[in-house]
């Protein structure tokens, strides 16, 4: 039987991660190319929003990714807490910057899209606000991680923070939503629902392709980052020294 736990040790995971990185990087580039082509040339112009809606093909996957990545990160952190496996917390660490990047992209493209659609760069819409808070959570995670010198303590402390965050996300999300309905008069009616309902099949496909491109990009980047983290933390161990020797000669 395929032994999964064999790869939970950094030494055996390192080469595997290297191969997977290449694989996912290629897949992500291809999908991205296809997705961008579909996005600009194949998908029809939206009858209500014109060409501007095309930014949605990057906005929506980015927003999805930003939330998925946090959950995945928390899962790795939980695994690291329970089994004390070093690799799990390294994975959590390596996912955070990518997650923060997608959150930022989602906010930024959202603002670009909001300007022509709503006439404002920013509205205190429930989704936008929760996305912003998510960005804060990512930044807090990374700040805590980098403030602690001892890598083991850093990994465990930030892992705990990720878990606390993931418990809070639904509470924050629902409270923001409720807050938004209470203040509905001041905010502009969101028309997003209208777009999604009227999406043609080709739009959905484009969106899916773009989402998978983002997924593969995330996996590739996270694996690559985890490789360098492994090298850094295990720099004392025999196999890393052997590897570096080999690279030099």
């Amino acid at each position: 039987m395929f032994n999964l736990f064999k790869f939970s040790s950094p030494a055996s995971f390192y080469p595997l991660a290297g191969r997977l990185t290449t694989l996912f990087a290629i897949a992500s580039v291809i999908l991205l190319a296809v997705g961008l082509y579909m996005r600009f040339f194949v998908a029809p112009t939206d009858y209500k929003q014109g060409e501007g809606y095309r930014i949605m093909f990057i906005h929506v996957p980015a927003a999805w990714m930003s939330m998925f990545i946090y959950v995945v990160m928390a899962c790795w952190a939980a695994a690291g807490m329970i089994w004390h496996t070093r690799l799990s917390s390294m994975m959590a660490t390596s996912l955070a910057p990518t997650g923060a990047m997608f959150t930022f992209i989602a906010l930024w493209t959202g603002a670009l899209w909001g300007k022509p659609m709503w006439g404002a760069w920013w509205v205190w819409d429930a989704r936008l606000t929760s996305e912003l808070i998510l960005l804060f959570l990512y930044v807090g995670f990374m700040a805590l991680e980098s403030a602690i010198d001892d890598p083991r303590r850093a990994a465990r402390a930030s892992g705990l923070l990720a878990l606390v965050g993931v418990v809070n996300i639904p509470i924050i999300y629902y409270s923001v939503q409720w807050w938004n309905t209470l203040h509905q008069g001041s905010s502009i009616k969101v028309v997003k629902g209208g777009v999604e309902a009227s999406m043609s099949e080709i739009m959905i496909w484009t969106l899916l392709v773009m989402t998978f491109a983002c997924w593969f990009y995330t996996i590739a980047v996270a694996l690559n980052r985890v490789r360098s983290i492994i090298l850094e933390r295990e720099s004392d161990s025999m196999w890393v020294k052997a590897l570096l020797q080999g690279a030099k000669s």
């Binding site: 808070i133 959570l137 807090g140 700040a143 805590l144 923070l161 965050g165 809070n168 409270s175």
Partner: peptide, 21 residues
């Protein structure tokens, strides 16, 4: 930690949001 005070606010304030709302 160095600069623990500022870090605390960064970590804790987002969690305070539901209570505030």
């Amino acid at each position: 930690l160095r600069g623990g005070g500022v870090l605390v606010s960064l970590l804790v304030l987002p969690l305070y949001i539901p209570v505030l709302i």
